[in-house]
Amino acid sequence: MSILNKFRGKSLWMLHYCTGCGAIEMPPVMTSRYDMERFGIIPMATPRQADILLITGYLAVKTLKRVIRTYEQMHSPKWVVGFGACTVNGGMYWDSYATIKKLELYLPVDLYIAGCMPRPEAIMDAFIELRKGISSGKYEGWKKYIENYDWYKKNQAKLFDVKKWSVNYE
């Protein structure tokens, strides 16, 4: 399926989950200065249509639940990009009780963009790397999420301090 992967890599529809301060770096990337549309990356309105989930900045415990629901509403193949130091190790919120430290414990992050905050150049660089990786089949976080579903759910439940946690649409 490598041919299809080429297409997938060249058309990345992005859902940016802008909770943190990193969102302010997105407008220059989208608009004339850096223009991410030339790589086929455009912002989307709903998770159903999106391919990339871009988490810009810190996630509160409460927000994480929404992010997980959003992620599970997206259609595979899908990728998660952690943006900024907050998603890597908590960043400047490393000792906060209300935010999560490591995003990859709860969602299969394919790519991190380090920095506080990363410059638009760094974001563009990450997108190009993501594009290359997807085309070659390197990033397959969504498969990881399915394979290790129980592990992710366990981590999420631990964080939310409940016995069992699922998206629960019943």
């Binding site: 299809l4 297409f7 997938r8 060249k10 058309s11 529809w13 608009t31 004339s32 223009d35 549309e37 030339r38 790589f39 086929g40 159903r48 391919d51 509403q73 259609h75 595979s76 193949p77």
Partner: peptide, 26 residues
């Protein structure tokens, strides 16, 4: 018009094929 470079002219074909090649739908 917006002084951007813009996607290649065949971008819409790529988008369509990508959408049709999605592995799950609800």
């Amino acid at each position: 018009l917006q002084r951007r470079y813009g996607p290649p002219f065949y971008q819409q074909y790529i988008d369509t094929i990508k959408l049709l090649a999605k592995k799950t739908v609800s």
